[in-house]
Amino acid sequence: MTQQVEPGPTARLGRAVGTPGTVGGVALVLPGGEPQSARGPSPWARAVVRPLARDLASAGAGAGLAVHVVRYRGRGWNGDDARLAADADWAVDEVVRRYGDVPVSLIGLDMGGRAALRAGGHQAVSSVVALAPWLPAEGAGADAEPVRQLVGRRVLIAHGTNDERADPELSFRLAERAKKANRDTCRFEVHSDGHGMRQHRSEVRALVSDFVLGAVFGRPFARPVADALAAPPPLGLRMPLALGFGQK
């Protein structure tokens, strides 16, 4: 008798946040995860990024930005499997299938930030945002987190200086290497804030919206973002996120 094998879980794009009408670009929001885990996807991790997704959808509705929160197959990166990055790559493929040839921005928090950076090489991706990205301590040679896939993309990293879960110095070092390969890379430091950057959440969300709408639709960036992209390292990679950013 042949044993029936149950299919494994699959990644999902998730229902669009808001109603953009005619879609001219897509933002995929990638939740956090764990370095190693066999457990299923975390509803809590998705709930954490939904307010960011709603803000993005509201800011981009008039321009035709569709926003989706990606549901992973599980919550673990799991070493060489890099499952969260593979799920992000699948989600971009699904965007192309569903919406056609539109620019895609990947926005990830925590381990989702690592997934966004790794999956940024997909040909449909125009920009990458990594918020407090969880990154492994870098080794030598092939052990270093790759950055060449980011060439031709606009890249934003934002990190709280008091982050005790994801070392901000690791994201700075990655940004240094990324900047050498791709000048359209910038990094903002959220001073005195922790991993979730909750003390300055309004400024962080405004920064993300400004960057995504500029990268996807060609809108002018806010002056601090334009300055950070243009500045040589380390200035453009340690740009302080000003109190009240995005407020009129």
Rank of each mutant, 00 (worst) to 15 (best):
E138N: 03
P233C: 09
A142Q: 11
P20F: 10
G120E: 07
V23S: 05
A57Y: 05
R183Y: 03
R50W: 05
H122R: 14
F221V: 02
V70M: 13
A181R: 13
P41E: 12
R219K: 12
F245L: 08
D163Y: 04
W77E: 05
Y99R: 08
D101E: 04
S42E: 08
D227P: 07
G120T: 01
A27I: 05
A63V: 00
T185A: 09
P7A: 15
R223D: 12
L156Q: 05
G112W: 03
N162D: 15
G113S: 07
L30C: 04
P41I: 07
V96K: 13
T22A: 10
E94R: 15
P220K: 10
Y72F: 14
N162C: 13
R118E: 14
E203P: 01
T185K: 10
V48G: 00
R173W: 04
V67I: 13
G120A: 06
E34A: 11
A242C: 04
G236A: 11
L243R: 11
P35D: 09
A158D: 02
M197C: 06
F188R: 04
P103H: 11
S37W: 12
S127C: 06
T10L: 15
D167I: 05
R15D: 10
R198A: 13
V128Q: 01
Y72I: 06
G100D: 09
V128S: 03
S126D: 02
S58D: 14
M239G: 01
G236E: 10
L131Y: 01
V190Y: 05
R148M: 07
Y72D: 05
P168K: 15
F217H: 12
N78A: 10
G74W: 01
R148S: 10
G100F: 09
V147H: 02
Q36S: 12
M111Y: 01
L109G: 00
R75E: 11
S209T: 08
G236V: 02
W77F: 08
P168D: 14
R83I: 05
Q247N: 13
M1N: 14
N182E: 14
S126P: 01
E6K: 15
R165Y: 14
G141S: 07
A215C: 07
A45Q: 11
N162R: 15
A158T: 09
D167F: 08
R98Y: 01
T22H: 08
F217R: 14
L207W: 07
G25D: 03
E176I: 04
S192W: 13
P133V: 06
E138V: 02
Q247C: 11
P31E: 03
D93L: 09
G194H: 09
A57P: 01
L135F: 02
V70E: 07
A124W: 06
D87P: 08
L65Y: 01
D210W: 12
G120C: 08
G64A: 04
K180T: 06
A47L: 01
V128C: 03
P224G: 13
L213A: 07
V104C: 07
R205F: 13
P20G: 05
T2G: 12
A91V: 08
A85S: 11
